[in-house]
Design a protein around this nucleic acid. Sequence first.
RNA 1: GUCCCCAUCGUCUAGUCAGGUCCAGGACAUCGGCCUUUCACGCCGACAACACCGGUUCAAAUCCGGUUGGGGACGCCA
Length: 492
Amino acid sequence: MTETRLRFPPSPTGYLHIGGARTALFNWLYAKKTGGKLILRIEDTDTERSTQDSIQGILDGLEWLGIDWDEGPYFQTEYSHDHLAAANRMLAESHAYKCFCTKEELEARKEAAMAAKQVVGYDGTCRNLSPEQVTEKESAGSPFVLRFKVPERSGMLGYDDKVLGRIEINYKEVDDFVIVRSNGTPLYLLCNVVDDIRDRISHVIRGQDHMTNTTRQVLLYEALGAPLPVFAHMPLTLDLKKAKISKRKHGEIVAVHFYQEHGFIPWALCNFLALLGWSPGDDREIFSREELIEAFSLERINKANSIFNYRLGDEKFFTDPKAIAINEHYLRTMDIGEIGDMVQKVLEKEGLWDLSYAGERKDWYLHTLDLTRDRFHTLNDFATLGRAYFADDFQVEKKPLEKNLLKFPELKEWLPQLADRYQTLDLFTAEETERVAKELADEKGVKPGVIINGMRTVVTGQLAGPSMYDILMVLGREKVVQRLRDVSRLFQ
RNA sequence: GUCCCCAUCGUCUAGUCAGGUCCAGGACAUCGGCCUUUCACGCCGACAACACCGGUUCAAAUCCGGUUGGGGACGCCA
């Protein structure tokens, strides 16, 4: 069997979004699965909208996700010679013809067809121009485009789709499409096929929104005398209103960098994306890289579109709850060293990173992450909810402040007293600090919870957290005493 | 409007090709409980779906037809 060759061909007209990332992921998975190659090709023939920033954004996004490629990036504009050669060959072999219809004429005819509720498509006006007529128009300087000449055949035009099965359409439904613009530049339908042939692409995995393109491209392959690749059209990812997700309509929430900025673990996002439109056939939902590659197959890609269940304006569920759940799973179960590397970037960005965390305090650093990660949802939480572990300027949240502190005014006196006792403790251990805290509660005639929760609020700013005495050990006597003594500032 | 594709819990899905083991399984979310003198994690439990109509069959979520619904495409964008 010859090598499988797949490609991811983004057009650099914006950031990488999750739909594109998912397409890239599926292609990557299949390439890995079959021991083949993934080719990255930047389809930048839309010079109006392509930008350098976008190219960089796509590259960065793929790198962050861990989707690597074997060849490229190739740039489509660098192969325009190939595209034009193919177009000229088709013209010479009567697979294409010059069309002199102007945009205005086409527009008028289209509207007329719409009004008359007829099929909207090119009517073939220039298809049967005689050589003399063509020469005449050309010498008159009339601009022209090149149109593909759809064969006059009865019956059906089709292909076998790996996920959808046989797809067919009647030849008469396909109108003659433009392959080269009047300014001489080739169009997507053509470039894409020419490049896929040159790059020896064996499998084309793309969204179902390309299905009509595929039927027309089948004709192009035929005209160019090239064998058809295997086609697999993935279901689309829809928004809550069941519209195709797009950068323009959905903005940040569908951008890969949004997840990076919100503290997602890259592989967690890949894992989530893989489950959107594919399943292994059993109950597994969490996959390592190797497991996913092993389990993946084109046949198990779903036919039906899926909905990206994002939520806007929800603090905890800022995106699809399942994506967050998967992220949490990795956050709690991954090797703490790997988590440490990822959190380092977050802390650096927030100005909370200390070089000693990678040196003499590394054990402390990793222990702290391990202690707190069970309650967190994203990597960013270490710098926000967990800020008190790395800095003194943390915020005391309103809810615990009112519930655990202001409600008990006596704590203004008691907590500094506790600080004094901690200060003079022979051994600052979990057992000792617990004993002393309970002792104080006993003396004051309150439940230990009053002291403990007040202490938690002052020391971490949070309502929830790990075992109080574990926290004290991580923070160390000095910080604990200092924060407890300073409690009066919160009673202002 | 025309063509193409699709249709199982709120969401992601298993089951459909080889009809019975499915009064439909898992996950997320939600709700309840256990655990925890915090909150989570974890564990246990509950709620919740075969779009509709007809046909084939002893038997249909599964096969066939239709209806409805949803999506996509209809560019000198990619």
